[in-house]
Design a protein around this nucleic acid. Structure first.
Lengths: 203, 203, 203, 203
DNA sequence: GATGAATGAGGTTTCATTCAT
DNA sequence: CATGAATGAAACCTCATTCAT
């Protein structure tokens, strides 16, 4: 269909494209999408504005790439953690606690960038999709996790529970990571775990 | 020396300023901050660009006004609800349920606008302050609410609990209101209430 | 012809018009014509912008008034000085010295405003005329002065001499008044007088 | 971080910048600084407004460039003349006469532009500096010139004399060049030279 | 008459994108 | 291929002037 943007075939080409995405990610995080311009991205990546446009059709295009990469990185991180956790046989409280810790770790590099998203979200269909699919993955993963212990759970509606759990965890983690929170992170984590354990397993 | 923005002296003036704020609020909600320009705001308010600039120094300035007005409206709504609830002697579960319902109601008109905020949040100090103060009020109110029944609570750290509760409620309400959620709102509400009751009162 | 601007008939009216001219003169001197706006002038004069426009057709109109008033004031001052000088019978050197001193006095309040003029001079015909007529008066007065002692003068062309003398005096006085000159004003005056005396009277 | 005005790397770039300065100089001279806008400058230079702003931060910025170029050109011209004059051994009167003629020549292209300066002079610090440094150079050069024949001079204070001479010459030359003067330029020159010779050498 | 709110043309400035070299 | 100069639409903002109250 398109024949405009170059599909990197050579090594150098791949490196250049990557450099642009990295530079863009950094700038978007630091200053936000609208306060970052293509010239700055190109300069930060060490290429000319002209080059920028042979790798991406427009600014939104890099944004989408950055978004996808972040999305994948976060999910990979979570997957790895989950896999690791499932392997060991730990008690519920410990599993949840580890999970949350892992989320905090994986969130940290992306937070400010994620703040950006809700903006474009309003109007950009593709961004909306990426975001929703990411949310969906989170929700589904949570659901699967719940199903693993479904016979021990005391919740009414599993689907709704997954949403509630996922949202609660996400938002508290967000708060911890993004706002450095005055209330100590440790206390927040403890309470969060406590809440989930009581809710899910009735203690 | 002064020559700054006009301080309304005449009635007409007050109406104009208000019209501009209203128009801005509407447009920001519909299209987002960056996709709205001052000319459009002026036009939507039925005034000239010149008028816009005699009431506000720039676009950010109206944004701040809209933000404050929303903030106040939301808090007023919540206050009213809380006042009403404390009066009657209801059982815990019902109180929480009512509260959540009330939050859903008060959120609805402002959601898309609130989405906008996280954007400017990154860099604008004033926006940051307004948002944080709004969050602080929410957190403190939650804390007060918890303290009302502090002897019945089974939580470890009250301060942390307030944050966890406030965040969980906010995020789930957000999800319900903003995303029209595929999982039914009723189920979500039920689970959310259930989680809170179990966490706070141990059943 | 015009019926637009009000011709002050009442006392109050005259005072208002005067207040505006004064305010304008002050602001033009301080910030220059273009950096002064009508709102500021009106405010400084303690009247509304609307009133401003019932006394003057536009901004240029006040400027012209200010210009004329300055022009007249300066000429009056010089006239007075000259009249005074001619009366007494002083030696040449003293006369010239007094004259220069007097010019310094009369210049001082107007300098910064006069700087402004050269600007509009380029294009505004009326301003041009006022300025040229002012220059012409100076030149003619100098000529008359020279003619008083024409038999003692050693200059070739009287008309040209008048221009040379007038320009030299004006520019040095300007430098003294406007730049506060690092070289002492007294020395400058002494040399200037010396130059003129030698030129005109051959010692 | 940078993102400032473009520093010409390519030949084309240098030409463009130059074209803009030329166009600006022309327009400033013809219509004055305030009646010239950036769009006109860009158009006259045959470039887009965007280009204008990649070479200059704003209108004042080009003005400064034009100012510096003029300053240098005038000084170069004067230097050349002086060098030439010093070489030949001419009599005082002839030297002064040549000098004035040379000043008239060098002034001619810049006069109307120089009129503009007094305006900005009032408030713009950089313009003030350029102008004062230019004046200083003139004064110093005059002083050096006087010192060459210091033993033949009959003046009291050399420093003051330099100022008086420089101002007198500048202003009369200005008058000749700028106002096309009704009194013949030749007569003015003759009288000016005569005045200086008598003042400096006592005939 | 006086007031100051409203107007909008005109100027300034930015930046995503194209294209000659 | 890469470069960075050039483009110009679109945003921002100001202020002399008008006019309803």
């Amino acid at each position: 269909m398109a024949d405009k943007t170059r599909k990197p075939r050579q090594d150098r080409s791949i490196k250049t494209k990557d450099a642009i995405v990295q530079a863009a990610a950094k700038l978007f995080s630091e200053k936000g999408y609208h306060r970052t311009n293509t010239k700055q991205i190109a300069a930060a990546a060490g290429v000319s504005t002209g080059s920028f446009y042979s790798y991406f059709t427009d600014k939104r295009d890099v944004f989408l790439d950055v978004l996808k990469i972040h999305s994948e990185a976060m999910q990979a991180h979570v997957d790895a953690t989950v896999a690791q956790l499932n392997a060991k046989e730990l008690d519920k409280r410990l599993i949840i606690s580890h999970m949350i810790e892992s989320l905090i770790q994986s969130h940290t590099p992306y937070i400010s960038f994620h703040r950006e998203l809700s903006l474009l979200l309003l109007s950009d269909e593709v961004v909306k999709e990426v975001m929703e699919s990411q949310y969906d993955v989170g929700r589904r993963k949570t659901l699967e996790f719940l199903k693993l212990s479904s016979d021990e759970l005391r919740v009414g509606n599993l689907e709704a529970a997954a949403v509630v759990v996922f949202e609660s965890v996400s938002s508290v983690v967000d708060r911890i990571v993004f706002y450095g929170e005055r209330v100590s992170a440790d206390h927040l984590k403890t309470e969060l775990v406590d809440m989930l354990v009581h809710y899910l397993f009735g203690e």
